[in-house]
Design a binder for these strands. Sequence first.
RNA 1: CGGAGAGUAGCGCAGUUGGCAGCGCGCACGGUUUGGGACCGUGAGGUCCCGGGUUCAAAUCCCGGCUCUCCGACCA
Length: 419
Amino acid sequence: MRYSKLFGQTKKSSPAGEVTVNANLLIRAGYVNKLMAGCYSYLPLGLRVLRKIENIIRKEMNAIGGQELFLPALHPAENWQKTGAWETVDVLFKIKSRTGRSYALGQSHEEIITPLVKEYLDSYQELPLFVYQIQEKFRDELRAKSGILRGREFGMKDMYSFHLNQGDFENFYEKAKEAYLKVYQQCALKAKVTEASGGAFSQKISYEFMVLTDAGEDDILYCQKCNYCINVEIAEFSQGTKCPKCRRGVLKKARASEVGNVFDLGRKYTRDFDLYVYNKNGEKIYPIMGCYGIGTTRLMGVIVEKFHDERGIIWPESVAPFKVHLLTIGRSKAVWQFSEKVYCALVEKGIEVLFDDRRKTSAGEKFADADLIGIPYRLVVSDKTVNNRQIEIKKRNQTKTSLVLLADCLEKFASPALK
RNA sequence: CGGAGAGUAGCGCAGUUGGCAGCGCGCACGGUUUGGGACCGUGAGGUCCCGGGUUCAAAUCCCGGCUCUCCGACCA
């Protein structure tokens, strides 16, 4: 991609009154644009990051048997009335059509997936079933805040599982948990599995996946010796008390952001929508349901909160919009010809490259933009390098630079599949 | 929804006692520059958030509303 043609370029000044790091950097670097509080457009650069995050999640969900589908965001009110959520869920956006019919915008999709599964589930032999989607959710938050961490419209992967019995659900929960931890690991994040309240429709414990960051909205207590972690909203002990699990460590309190969750929905929805099967003994069974969410846009925001410095974003390679950022510095014909050659060679090898080919832009501005945008590797072709047909290479999170030949460069960045 | 702050050019902001609408960046054109956000010149660009009111005169004062940010409450 040629930066001169990219829609959504950097801004020199911070958006007015925006203090959140993720909003500030993502807006300034040209990843997102705010339409209104809690509602963001994803520009080409931002969409590339979001798609990478989604694909990491997609791969892991598929690996545990998840089947991707896509549900409507606009829902008939009747589905929400049937579960009682129409009256009780205050974040539900409600809409009236011209003809007076009532609709809801999906804040979650249990009300849609359950009757859908009912239409196709014929036998207990089809269980367990795991379906998921990646879609925008709508929640009428009283106060949207923290940039893309809490929006009124936001991206989410939501998976729903259906099981014959509690034991089967719990087995799958363990697999889902491992898959989630792999997702965060690939996003370079360390997530803690945290006990939390079950929310409005479940008296049971739920699990949240928390990443430590001051930008978060939750307080957790975690053990420094084992993996025990609990949300303070349900914790019966305080900071400094002995860990109830390993009895060796001491609990520490910290701020965190919830980047995923798992709920045991029990038979709430299958009963509400009369979704049942007969087991092999001819007994009528309402399946146990679980739901599993990962906020895709929030995950993107948390990554920025974790990986940045005073100059800009420092993307982990796995989610970076491009692998390399090629800068051309200087105006000599030799520099231009060589950088064009390098760009074309990288593109031909299938290496994701953003080429800062702006003719009149100063070196300082290109460096500053490269730091702000935060692509993992910076390549520079300039008068200093071109005589020896070399390219300067620097990692975004390091200060040292080195010189390499084009062939070495292509070798270094070639994707494993092409090697 | 309670508390606090803000809304003026595309973006960031200044605007004193009520008296011609300004600055920086960006943008367009010309020129000089070229390894860390260079410089000179010229130019375009305005519903001063919206609606009332006071006044000879309102970006400025008063009333009402809207939007944004932060804190809180809220938050499957």
